[in-house]
Amino acid sequence: MDKLRQRAPLLIALALLAFIPQLLALVGLPGRQGAFWLSLLTQMLIWGLFALSYDLLFGYAGLLSLGQAIFFGLAIYGVTLSSLYWGFSPWEALGSGLLISLVGAMLVGIVAVRVPGHGFLIVTAVISLIVYLMAVAASGWTGGTNGVTVTIPSLDFGLLRLSLFDPRQGYWLALGLLMLSYAALRWLTRTPLGRALELIRENEPRAEALGYPTLRLKFVVFVISGSFAGVAGLLYALINQFASAGLLQWTVSANALIWTLVGGAGTLVGPLIGTALLKFLEYLFGGWWPQGYPLLLGLVLLLVARAAPQGIVGMLRAWRAQRELR
């Protein structure tokens, strides 16, 4: 019963999210307007999944990486290029996308996790830059910064065929994949393995002296989190049917860092909230004052650093803890 009560807010939020397409239709936004809002929400879900993968690495294991976009971008290219040039079926394309991001995460991880302290950030940023420049250099193939488009009309689940051109079905796909990933990561963070990641964040030499193979653990979390970034990339490729070298840039990873910090690192829910909030603000500003968004972002970050270093979720938890004390 208690467990149910604890989970009630999450279940209600999930139910609401699942019926948003119907709700939008009800309030009289069926046509183009409704589709627009739905697609904005879908983008939030895709980027939220990317931020979620980042939180495992940064929020739990304390690894400040600027290379997370590599595995996001590799998965996107894996899907688009394999179906574009080799005629892979949607499932084959998804498989190759996931595989290439997994292998990429292993290769980058082997090098990066050995570098201690701030060196890790620099190494991941530099590798990210190199991969980006390689994608730009191969413009004829990758489309460079202009990107390439691909057409994957539908995804066949056997009993069910999802039309990727239908915004509602794309939305449900994104929501489903995000929720599955969230459940998997929530489970993982509650295992002794998840706790071991927190030990590394809190005090790596102490964890090692207790018998935790910290180097191996850092590699494992780098690969797991890189693979979830890859899953976000698969989703991006299916929904947007587009790939671009810009998606490999370190600035894309920096966005995930900002969303995670604003929402609350090490909470999993926080990065989702941070992503939704900042994506919404980005949209609001984009329309009438595009230069305003970076300014606002700076202000928000300053506010978080000064007033809520644990992010939005951390602040809410502190409030609740205080209320319970009274």
Binding site: N203, R206, E208, Y212
Partner: peptide, 19 residues
């Protein structure tokens, strides 16, 4: 260090805040 710990060597640190 982690292998030594598994093998039966425990240690405390002069300055440690644990976790």
């Amino acid at each position: 260090p982690h292998r030594r710990a598994r093998e039966g060597i425990g240690r405390t640190f002069q300055i440690s805040s644990a976790f």
